[in-house]
């Protein structure tokens, strides 16, 4: 399985990571190498095997639908690179 520049560009966009044009090619080579290595899994017979997403069989717990915290706006905003009037700020998205 080998990735081309366009596919890497697309994944980079989906990942929201800026990748310079001249690094697309080496990155494609590197990722393709890893994908080739993944091919070995095809040897494993997994017919009828349920995909395992968790090691615990536990069912998610229920809790009462009550407020357990809140009122910590200042604490939450304290780490923001830019905050104003109790909000996070973003670049202008509406003209």
């Amino acid at each position: 399985m080998s990735l081309d520049r366009d596919t890497v560009r697309k994944i980079a966009f989906l990942s929201r990571i800026e990748v310079a044009d001249d690094t697309l090619e080496p990155l494609a080579g590197q990722l393709s190498g890893i994908l080739d290595w993944f091919e070995q899994l095809k040897e494993v017979d997994t017919d009828g095997v349920q995909p395992m997403s968790s090691v615990t069989d536990a069912v998610l717990r229920w809790r009462d639908d009550v407020i357990t915290d809140g009122g910590i706006r200042e604490k939450i905003l304290a780490n923001a690179p830019e905050a104003m009037d109790g909000f996070f700020t973003v670049p202008k998205v509406v003209e």
């Binding site: 980079a12 966009f13 990942s15 929201r16 990571i17 800026e18 990748v19 939450i76 780490n79 923001a80 690179p81 830019e82 996070f88 973003v90 670049p91 998205v93």
Partner: peptide, 21 residues
């Protein structure tokens, strides 16, 4: 947006992508 490093961009997507790069 909410914590840590931020690298400005012209659009929201550009800001995300530059920050993460």
């Amino acid at each position: 947006l909410r914590f840590g490093l931020r690298v400005e961009g012209k659009t929201l997507d550009e800001m995300y992508a530059r920050t993460r790069a």
